[in-house]
Every structure is written in structure tokens, then in C-alpha cells.
Simulated scan of single mutants.
Amino acid sequence: MVRFKNRWLLVEFLPPSSTNTNSPPPELTGKHIYAALRQSVISHFGDVGWGAVGASLNVKYFSPTTALCIIRVAREPYRIAWGALTLLASIDGWTCIPNVIHVSGTIKHAQLAAIEHNRIVVARYRARAHTTAGYKDSYTDYLEQSTQELQSLRD
């Protein structure tokens, strides 16, 4: 039996300005990201690019709180998907800058990188709010919830 080999892209969608801390709209979902990525692949790499990427492209996880996303794509054409992500300008009208944080061969390593990245982002939010490290806030609940969601992902 032949195994289908994937690449997992961990992507953070940043607002265009560092002073603008707008998170993505709450109605933004993985389907919107998939549609925007599909359109980016088609417009920049044509039908051949979409033919290479389309069968394996899948958005496995998206968090509207931290704008973090895990995308699965086949191993051979993953650079096409990465290029299309880099050239993506907006998702469903929301202007963003995609930042590929991590690329891995297994979902487990993508999960671990996402959990670590969530902790870093929440630490930044807490630093901006000038809260102490032991302070319990909604971010604590979010970290627990997102960690459980990420660990429950399966290939």
C-alpha cells in the first residue's frame, strides 16, 4: 500500500498594519480561506497549478481569535500552495498578510507548532494589557480550548 504524503502549512493571517490590531471578522471560516486560496492558485498558477494542488488542498483548522490556520496539501505541489498563500491579498473582503510560520510533514508537528504559537500570541496580548503572569482571563480559557481542538485533529 502506498502512503499519501502531505505537507502541513501553519499560517497566520496578519492585519496589514502593525498598529491595527483588528482580528479577522468572526464570520470568517476555513471555507472562506479555502475559496480565497483556490482563487489565488488559479489566478497566479492557472489551471495547471490548481490541477496539481486542488485534489489535496484542505483547511484543517482555523482560529478566528488568533487568525491561525493549518492547511494540508500534497508533498509535491506544496510550493504552489505556499506561493499562492504568499500572493493572497484578502479573504472575503478582509485585507490580510499571510505569514507561513511552519511547514511540516506530519500533522503532529504542525499541532505542536500551532500550540506554541498560540502561547506566544496570547503572551503578546497579555503584555499589551499589562497583566501579570498569574492573572486568569479569557485567554487562559482560549488556550485550553484551542489546545484541545488542535490535539483532536486527525489526518
Rank of each mutant, 00 (worst) to 15 (best):
R79S: 02
E116R: 14
T106W: 07
K136N: 11
P77W: 03
S43M: 09
R79V: 03
D141L: 09
G134W: 11
I97H: 13
S90L: 04
L112C: 07
W94S: 01
H109D: 08
R128N: 14
S138T: 10
Y142C: 01
L143F: 04
P98V: 08
R79C: 02
V41P: 03
N99V: 08
I80S: 01
H130S: 15
Y78D: 00
R72H: 01
R124N: 11
H109I: 00
D92S: 14
A52Y: 09
Q111W: 00
R72Y: 05
Y125I: 12
S43C: 02
R119K: 15
S104W: 11
R38M: 09
W94D: 01
F45E: 10
Y135K: 12
T147R: 00
A74H: 07
I71H: 09
S146Y: 01
T86C: 05
G54D: 09
I70D: 01
L87E: 13
G93W: 09
A113F: 06
A133L: 13
K60A: 12
A84D: 07
T132A: 08
I42Y: 11
A110N: 04
R119C: 04
L85G: 01
L143A: 03
Y142E: 07
C69A: 08
I120V: 11
I91C: 07
Q145K: 15
G93K: 12
V100L: 14
A127N: 13
H130P: 00
I80P: 00
A74V: 00
S40C: 07
L37F: 03
R79W: 10
Q145T: 10
D141V: 04
D137F: 04
L37N: 02
A84I: 02
